[in-house]
Amino acid sequence: MTAASHHAPVKGPSGPPTSGTTAGPHLRRSLTRALPVSPALILLLLFLAGPIGYCAYIAFTDLQLTGQAESSFVGFENFRTAFQDEAFLNAVWLTLVFTVLSSLIGQNTLGLALASLMQRASKPVRTLTGAIVITAWVLPEVVAGFLLYAFFRREGTLNAILDWLQLPSQNWLFTLPILAVSFANVWRGTAFSMLVYSAALNEIPKEITEAAQVDGASGRRRMWHITLPMIRRSIGTNLMLNTLQTLSVFGLIWVMTRGGPGGKSQTLPLFMYEQAFQNSLIGYGTAVALLLLLVGALFSLVYMRLLRTEV
């Protein structure tokens, strides 16, 4: 967040008057000043930190949805089960495919391509494309899911176009569901990358690219040697945020395929949901959730690292 780092206010010793200067005025002043943080702090502790702590706890128990009120501590049993569970390993693999295809390759590359084309395009085309791509992003997740479901269904738009082009059509949601949901995620998420890269490209001084152009550097070379190095931090930030967002996609896949058929589009969030609710294994589902959370936390730390170097 650039605005943050640049406009750090000058912080002086002065502040609003605080009542009471008798016992421990310094401590009391600090407390009074910190008071407004407390509602947010309470909410965060109760409803965010609490569940995370609870998550770390029940991941090591055999808590079930129905039946027994008691649950017992089982150590690393859930994790051991997970790594021997083919359905889990399948979900890990599909999550990787989904993330690489839709976030790293799809959203990121398409977003960058759109942003750099927008630098050169005429204004009406730029505005129109921006509006359409952003609309896809602003639509509620479930609506996006339905639109793409209709698009990929056997009797949907994609096959109609393929027929018209006399290309072989197929039932995409059945044969290649993970590809279909990846495309859906690209459709829905590209706007974010486009906005980030547009902002980054606008900050590159015109003189630099023009100088390279006069020196005869080709478009591809300018991209590779000038543009990409200059926006590398935005690329890092964007990749991190895209990946984190993609890791937690649930509604889109749920609406389009429910993770099926036969688990062929079941990423980790859907696997976690199925274990916890359809199979009633809350402990096991939570162990999977904890793994997902740890991966997310790791990415989050890398992201913070990137932000720090930017300051």
Binding site: I58, F250, G296
Partner: peptide, 11 residues
């Protein structure tokens, strides 16, 4: 940047 989806089961 934590994936909120992941904590829904414990919540």
């Amino acid at each position: 940047s934590l994936p909120i989806t992941a904590i829904m089961v414990p919540v």
